[in-house]
């Protein structure tokens, strides 16, 4: 692989209580590409994603071994403030969680906590990010309505804009379209493709079709292990493992 490696996971093991959730995970996620993590539900793909920005810290009885290197900095063993690390990664979750504020402030929130207070600047930046996710035209006249008044699809795009606003270089998305209608899903997918020139995108999904549409690099997980990974073209046309083959054929889900 010639590309630059953005996230490198080395010998990652994760336990919740006595359960072994992630087993010897090794992977190198390329920069400025879309990496898709595939697998049936319960295989640990969401946990892997959340350990990348250490949201696993939030849950009890979690024990993590190994290394996660982002631009060669091991985020599991570092003195860097966790908020600084998290700011570098925008998270898009399964269903949208807009902040309990109006539409404008949802995007401005991240800017404000990063120290941008100038009103004119804020306004410009908010517009910029809302345009980036194709939401500006729909909401420009109702910026002061509560974010919860938007449709689910709009909320998810708002959350994407919010995540981009803190200027991350990675986007982590956890089944970002599973709660959305087909049209909104397509918008989000297209956005990912547009954004990959500037961002490294990691998407967890259980939709094979979606993975085929957007992936540059694919990882297939099963029962806490990585079964197979590789550039999308090879991965989908020519899988080497029996399990991957039957998954791609849709034999199990």
């Amino acid at each position: 692989m010639s590309e630059h490696v953005k996230i490198s996971v080395e010998d990652l093991n994760l336990y919740i209580g006595k359960q072994h959730i992630l087993k010897d995970i090794n992977t190198r996620i390329p920069e400025n590409q879309i990496t898709v993590i595939l697998g049936p539900s319960g295989c640990g793909k969401t946990t892997l994603l959340k350990s990348m920005n250490r949201l696993t810290d939030l849950y009890s009885n979690v024990k993590v071994d190994g290394k996660i290197l982002i631009d060669n900095e091991d985020i599991l063993h570092t003195d860097t403030d966790i908020t600084t690390i998290r700011k570098r990664m925008g998270l898009l979750s399964q269903r949208p969680y807009p902040l309990p504020m109006n539409i404008f402030n949802n995007v401005a929130y991240g800017l404000r906590i990063s120290g941008r207070k100038n009103k004119a600047v804020l306004r410009k930046r908010v517009q910029h990010y809302l345009e980036l996710v194709n939401l500006w035209e729909e909401v420009k006249d109702r910026l002061h309505d509560p974010a919860s008044s938007l449709s689910i699809g709009q909320q998810q795009r708002l959350c994407l804009a919010r995540g981009l606003s803190v200027d991350p270089d990675i986007i982590l998305a956890d089944e970002p379209t599973s709660a959305l209608d087909p049209i909104s899903s397509e918008v989000i997918e297209r956005k990912f493709v547009d954004l990959k020139s500037q961002y490294t995108v990691v998407v967890v999904t259980h939709s094979l079709q979606q993975a085929k549409r957007i992936a540059d690099y694919a990882i297939f997980m099963y029962l806490g292990e990585i079964i197979e990974q590789g550039p999308a073209a090879d991965f989908f046309s020519n899988p080497t493992e029996e399990l991957t083959r039957s998954y791609i054929k849709g034999l199990f889900n």
């Binding site: 920005n53 908020t83 925008g90 979750s93 991240g110 990063s114 959350c159 995540g163 606003s165």
Partner: peptide, 12 residues
Amino acid sequence: SGLLEATLSLGS
């Protein structure tokens, strides 16, 4: 807890 995750992910 999704809201907590979302907010922390923004660097809060």
